[in-house]
Computed example of a mutant assay.
Amino acid sequence: MNKIKQKIKIFILRLKLYCKYRNFNMSLSENIIISRKAKIILGENSKLVIGKNVYISDNSRLIVHNNSTLILEDNVYVSINSIISSNSSVIIGKNTSIAHNTTIIDTNKKFEDINIRIKDQGIVSKSIYIGEDCWLATGVVVLPGVTLGRHCIVGANSVVSNSFEGNCVLGGVPAKIIRKL
């Protein structure tokens, strides 16, 4: 019976997906809620893992580009208008809440040669890991290569461009430690 339920879940989720390629890997757990207005885009050889009790709200986007991985562990909440984009690897730890209008993106443009147009210089991707029990407030931007430890709180409209150990409150542009927990 569980195999049938899993197949039904995958079928329903595929109705909400935009899959440019057929070759992708998707693993879904139980009690997942994905808004009808949310969008999931999977590239070729991509991997999407969604844990138990995950909620993805209206107008949110999960984008898993070719040959990349996105993992949302158990009890992750993604609020309205948030974007999580993976070109290499993005992992969101258990019990993490992502407030509305937040962007998590593991890719940036190269811009090393002023004689070549920026759009022609390619991209650089670096994995992102957000630890367990974190809270990213409204409008936070997390940039490539960032690791946040357990129990990090990131204040509204902060830009996280560096990694931080856990148990702290971060804020600002660029984000810095405001207080240790």
Rank of each mutant, 00 (worst) to 15 (best):
V124G: 07
R22L: 12
K47R: 13
K39N: 14
N75T: 02
S29L: 08
I63L: 11
E30V: 10
S127C: 02
I71A: 03
N23P: 02
L48Y: 05
K37E: 15
I116K: 11
N53K: 13
S68N: 11
S57H: 01
K110Q: 14
K47L: 12
T103C: 11
R22Q: 13
N81H: 11
Y21W: 11
S82R: 03
N87V: 00
N81V: 02
S57D: 12
L17Y: 03
S27Q: 08
I98L: 09
D58W: 00
G122Q: 04
V78R: 05
V90D: 08
R61I: 06
S82A: 14
E132W: 00
K110E: 12
K47W: 06
S127Q: 02
I84K: 04
K5S: 05
G122P: 03
L15P: 06
F111I: 07
L15M: 14
K126H: 05
S88N: 08
D58F: 00
M26E: 12
G122H: 05
G122L: 06
N25G: 02
G131Q: 06
C19S: 12
V124L: 15
W135T: 08
I32A: 10
K20L: 13
K119T: 01
L136V: 10
L17R: 01
G51D: 04
S35D: 13
N67C: 09
Y129C: 14
Y129S: 15
K20R: 15
L42A: 09
I41G: 03
I71R: 10
N23Q: 13
N25E: 12
V76P: 10
R61Y: 05
E73M: 14
H65Y: 03
I10E: 15
I34S: 09
I71V: 11
D133W: 00
S97H: 10
L42M: 10
I56V: 15
R36T: 03
H65C: 07
I63N: 06
G131F: 13
G93Q: 11
N31P: 02
I116Y: 01
T96Y: 07
I91W: 04
T107W: 00
S85G: 15
V76S: 07
A38T: 02
V78H: 09
T96V: 11
L13Q: 08
K39W: 00
N25F: 14
F24G: 04
S127L: 01
I114P: 08
N53Y: 09
D74W: 04
R117Y: 00
Y55W: 04
T103E: 10
S127D: 08
G131M: 05
R14P: 00
